[in-house]
Amino acid sequence: MEAESMDHIFLQCSFAEELWLFFSGCFNVVWKKLDSMADFLQWWKRKLKIVCCKEVWALGLITVADHIWRERNNRRHEGKVRPINFIKQMILEDIKSSKPSTKGDVKIAVDVICCRKLGLLIQNKPTLPILEVYWRRPQVNWIKLNFDGSSMGNPGRAGASGIFRNHMGAVMDSYKIFIGVSKVFQAEVEGLMVGLMRAREMGITRLWVETDSSAVAISFEKKKTHGDGSIWCPLSFEALLCARRLGISRIQYKPKEIIEVFWCPPPPGWVMLNSNGCSLVNPGKAGAGGILRNVMAERWMSLALYLQSLTWKITHCLREANPVVDFLAKSAAKFEVSTPIVSGQR
């Protein structure tokens, strides 16, 4: 009588070996006879990386071992011996009843044969509709600006680029700039602002701006809605709000001499903090706030005036429709170069 051990019951006896050989053969995997359960489990784990139906392969380890143990108990304690072909069929039925997923696993003919041997239904991924993506020309007398930004690390070395084309698709102007270490959103915004400054120099009066960054498109559209692009509340609104909280129903306003008041941007490399505090009664409910701005704020304020003087729109496109500026922005970030590239006549 053969010695009974875990290695003998599940691996070394002829009955167990035939079941493992049958199951691995369904996957077109050559069965390797091993002496210990530890080595067997490592071998099974390695094969999991290469077989087609991975979920079924992992499930088979438990299912086959379970039937081996049941047959051992039936023979030892009840004296019943079941035909091995019947046990093979029961293994397949148990796996099929668990409804394992084969979605995305069937790619070649060998995978189809594997599913047929296991009696599994092939679950294909839903076919996605083909979407045609292309660059759209602007209307006659319009100029289209496509821009992009890239950051190698986010934050990391960043670049921005843009290209101007007319209704014939001819390139009117293009640029790429290296902007140092920055995040991708800042690089996208820089590409937009440089493009708008170029458009102002070119005297463009009808401009179509297009980007593959939905975040920049949404932010810029909000600037358009607000008119001047300001992000702070006027003092008159704050005064009316405070008066309402104090229960004041009428406010008498006496006009004074008109004095030009404007915000002065900081020098390049500096950041300006504007802060203020308010107390409703003094002492009373109080609050404070502040805003940090750099020299970019001045650029936007000047560009906002330019945008008010022309007809323009901004749209979002898929990345596949923006390949030229994507390449230019990445090359500017990678090689740390800024190059005006002009083609055609302005």
Rank of each mutant, 00 (worst) to 15 (best):
S5Y: 03
D7L: 06
I9N: 07
L11W: 12
L11H: 11
Q12I: 10
S14A: 14
L19Q: 05
F23V: 10
F27L: 07
N28T: 13
V30E: 15
K32G: 05
K32T: 12
D35A: 14
D35V: 09
S36N: 12
W44V: 07
K45A: 08
I50L: 02
C53E: 07
E55K: 14
E55D: 08
A58C: 10
L59R: 13
D66A: 10
W69G: 03
N73L: 05
N73T: 06
V81R: 15
N85Q: 11
F86R: 10
I87V: 15
I91Y: 03
D94P: 02
D94Y: 02
I95N: 01
S97N: 12
T102V: 01
K103L: 00
V112R: 14
G119I: 05
L121C: 04
I122Q: 00
I122Y: 00
Q123F: 00
R137N: 12
K144Y: 03
S150R: 01
R157I: 01
G159E: 01
S161R: 00
G162R: 00
M172H: 09
M172I: 14
D173A: 14
I179W: 01
S182M: 06
A187F: 03
A187Q: 02
V189A: 12
E190I: 02
G191T: 05
L192V: 09
L196V: 07
R200A: 14
T205I: 12
T205N: 09
L207V: 06
V209I: 15
F220G: 03
K222L: 15
T225R: 15
P234W: 02
S236H: 07
E238C: 15
L240S: 14
L240V: 05
L240F: 08
R245A: 12
R245Q: 12
R250S: 08
Y253G: 00
E257N: 10
P267I: 08
V271W: 08
L273P: 10
S275D: 12
N276W: 12
G277C: 09
C278F: 13
K285E: 08
A288Q: 08
G289C: 09
R293G: 09
L303H: 02
L303V: 08
A304M: 14
L305R: 13
K313A: 11
R319M: 10
P323G: 06
V324F: 05
D326T: 11
A329P: 03
A332E: 02
F335C: 05
G344A: 13
R346Q: 14
